[in-house]
Simulated scan of single mutants.
Amino acid sequence: MRKYRLRVGLDVDDTIYECNSYALSIINSRHHDEEPVSINEITGWGHYGRHSDERMALYGEPEFVRTQPIIPGAQKFVHELSRLADVFFITAVPPACMTARAERLRGDFPEIPPENIIIGTRKDVMAVDILLDDAAHNISSSRAAYPVLFRKPWNTDMSGLLAVNSYDDFLHLCKMVRSSFTEKAPDLSNGGVVCLVGPSGSLKNDIAHELIKLPRFEKPLTSTTRPRRAGESADAYRFIGEADFLREKDAGRFIETTVYSKYYFGTSDDEIAPIVARGHFAVIPIDICGALTVKNLYRSRAMLVFTNRRKNAVLLDIIGRETQPEDKVRRIMSLDFEYRNAEVCDVELPVGDDAAAAARTLEHMIGSAARRRPGKSGK
């Protein structure tokens, strides 16, 4: 298959240059007699957190734009990305800051042609193949074929969007999109990781429960801050408090973490690796952001499975849950984005109302994939 050269758009603030954290460092130095403003106080774009007016004013100062630190690894990331895609910087700054922004980008990223630096607020008219942006409102209005959210503390409550945790994950996603999975099919001949991706109500957890009844399928224990549901098994997840979760996250326990409906979820390779080493299948119901991280780590030994259940059944499942109305609204509003995630999964699993039947179908699909790729292994 001929390589297709992607067109990739990159947001700049908090994607390439530090913005919120840099502004807070300035503000905290001005108000050293107060408790420092935490990055976690910024929960969305605009006036969030203490001294938000002062923070927003900084974004309109040319000197601020000229001195924003480059996010560690950004230059290497852009260099590697430019080898497989035409890269466009798509950035919104006030008119007074446009020259400063253009000069910084041209100096820091000389491999990007000046004509590929696009300054303006209408990101919704940019028809690139893939867009990386930390602002959820830009992702939801994007015309890109694959709008990708760059996970930051202020967008953790956004569920269902195609998202990545790191530059490395985004590079791997770009390669996956470019090849459309035709170059290297999943190799599960000696076990591997089966990531179940799909919207709420698509029976991911039920299918996982049925799969682990079958030989060689095991479910690694995922940690979560979500409360245990009525009737839910105590070993369905490792249920822990948010403070403990964040402490373990900072200590590097998890290979991926994500937030779904304001609850944290995390997967540890200490739980996955022993299963794969035994030649078994680690089954993980997971959102697309976490699945891409797992795929990046396990490569061809990971299969991303989109659980494709008809939308009306998914809606009825969400509506019937004993959760808060705002949680139901959030899940329903994210459905269109979640169904688009099928495009970056390895296979689609048709799901009706019988999780056991879907599990048997998936077992057959995995067996067929293993038979097509005999004798290969290696993480």
Rank of each mutant, 00 (worst) to 15 (best):
V344H: 12
L316G: 12
G192A: 07
P69G: 03
A85L: 10
K249A: 08
K123W: 04
D354W: 01
A234R: 12
V65L: 02
S52C: 13
K184G: 00
D168M: 03
D129T: 14
I319G: 05
Y17W: 15
G44I: 08
V78P: 07
G198C: 08
R371V: 11
L161W: 00
E111V: 05
D13M: 14
P227H: 11
E61H: 10
M1S: 15
P113Q: 12
L58A: 04
A144L: 02
N40L: 04
V329A: 09
T258Y: 10
K376C: 09
N40P: 01
A145W: 04
N312I: 00
E343S: 12
R50E: 13
D327C: 06
V148Q: 08
T121C: 11
E61N: 12
Y167P: 02
S200D: 09
R301F: 03
A163W: 05
A230E: 14
A358P: 03
E103N: 13
L297Q: 10
K219G: 01
E338C: 00
F88A: 06
Q324S: 12
N28M: 11
A342M: 08
G320P: 05
P62E: 07
G44K: 05
G279D: 04
P94N: 04
A359E: 04
D86E: 15
V193D: 05
L171A: 02
G120R: 04
V177K: 01
N308K: 14
V78G: 10
K262C: 07
I26G: 04
Y263W: 07
M98S: 13
V12F: 10
L335F: 03
A102F: 04
V347F: 06
I286E: 03
K123L: 04
S334P: 06
E363Y: 14
I212A: 09
Q68F: 11
L132D: 00
P325N: 02
D124C: 05
H280C: 07
C289K: 08
T224W: 08
H47W: 06
D14I: 12
D53T: 08
R371G: 03
L214A: 13
S166K: 03
A355V: 00
V164S: 03
T307H: 13
P274F: 09
A144M: 02
R143Y: 04
G367Y: 12
D235K: 15
F254P: 04
K76N: 00
K123F: 01
L315A: 09
V87I: 14
R5V: 09
R229D: 09
L297K: 12
S25M: 06
Y339V: 11
R321E: 11
G44W: 02
R331P: 05
T293G: 08
R226G: 01
T224V: 06
P94H: 07
R151I: 01
N40Q: 11
R122H: 06
T182M: 09
L297I: 01
A313L: 15
F170V: 02
C289Y: 03
V344N: 14
N308S: 15
G192T: 05
M158S: 03
D244A: 15
H364M: 13
A136S: 14
K219M: 07
N190A: 15
L171T: 02
D269T: 14
M303K: 01
A236G: 04
H47L: 09
V148S: 05
A144T: 10
C19A: 13
T307C: 15
G191T: 01
G252R: 05
G320D: 08
K295L: 08
R278D: 11
V37R: 14
I70F: 05
M1K: 15
P147N: 09
K175E: 02
